[in-house]
């Protein structure tokens, strides 16, 4: 794989993560537990959508085949999506969503924090802006994990179940492979080695869970495959909904 296609692939991984999670969070609009939370969740979704657009646009530019953000979002099939499985799982109840938000925002925070010094200036600029957004997402999720974990018996039980639901998808976030090895090698790396994020992520999430009176589930068999386009059945349905109108009118402008 040329360095150019490696860069495209890397940008797609990051962009697809953000796009698919934005789509999932959009499902909460007009369904949140309180009006204030409707506004907050929409803000997180909007930030992620903005990140996705910047990253997909950049992937298209580097690829140089004339694909823009919409061509990449609407005309790829699920086998071509590169997001981690974590973000495509159905939203579940508010506890499942909160658990995923904590896991993912804490991961994204460590990632973007380091990607700010990428040798690739565009990625560095995207990361520089995104890290502030993600800092807020992580904080928002943290506040809710504390409240649900240390709230009522019911919320504690649901929060534990939420962690159980998302935990099989945690390991995949930190998987290194040939692509990340190639892009994160040398003195001026383009990418961040995902494995390097595990410890700081663990420290943050572990502390939040401990304060909330929760424990990370242990001995959970990990699920992976998203980075290679081997997804769960859920992604196909998510994309069917996302893409249907756009594909019904090939070539149209919206």
């Amino acid at each position: 794989m040329s360095e150019q296609s490696q860069l495209v692939e890397y940008a797609l991984r990051l962009g697809d993560d953000a796009l698919v999670l934005a789509q999932r969070l959009g499902e909460w609009v007009a369904r949140a537990p309180e009006l204030e939370e409707d506004v907050a969740m929409a803000n997180v979704a909007l930030d992620l959508l903005g990140q996705a657009r910047a990253l997909l646009t950049y992937a298209g530019e580097v690829e140089g085949a004339g694909r823009d953000e919409d061509a990449l979002a609407y005309w790829r099939d699920d086998r071509d999506f590169r997001n981690a499985l974590l973000v495509e799982a159905p939203g579940g109840d508010f506890a499942v969503t909160t658990a995923r938000q904590l896991v993912f925002a804490a991961y994204q925070y460590e990632l973007y924090e380091r990607l700010r010094s990428s040798a690739d200036q565009t990625l560095a600029a995207i990361a520089g802006k995104a890290v502030k957004e993600v800092h807020y997402h992580r904080d928002h999720a943290t506040q809710w994990v504390l409240r649900l974990g240390d709230g009522t018996e019911e919320s504690h039980r649901r929060m534990r179940a939420g962690l159980d639901t998302v935990w099989p998808y945690v390991d995949e976030l930190f998987d290194a492979d040939d692509l990340t090895a190639a892009l994160s090698a040398g003195t001026a790396p383009i990418a961040v080695d995902p494995a390097e994020l595990r410890d700081p992520w663990q420290a943050y999430v572990g502390a939040v869970l401990a304060e909330a009176g929760l424990e990370p589930p242990d001995d959970v068999p990990a699920r992976r495959g998203g980075r290679q386009g081997l997804h769960t059945e859920h992604l196909g349905h998510l994309l069917a909904e996302l893409q249907h109108l756009h594909r019904s009118h090939p070539g149209a402008t919206w």
Binding site: E34, L35, E36, E37, V39, A40, N43, D139, H140, Q143, R147
Partner: peptide, 20 residues
């Protein structure tokens, strides 16, 4: 004004609601 369970959440909600 807005509703929030406590000060921390009130501050965060205020940011989302009133400084969009």
């Amino acid at each position: 004004s807005l509703h929030a369970p406590d000060a921390e959440m009130a501050l965060r909600n205020a940011r989302d609601v009133y400084t969009r």
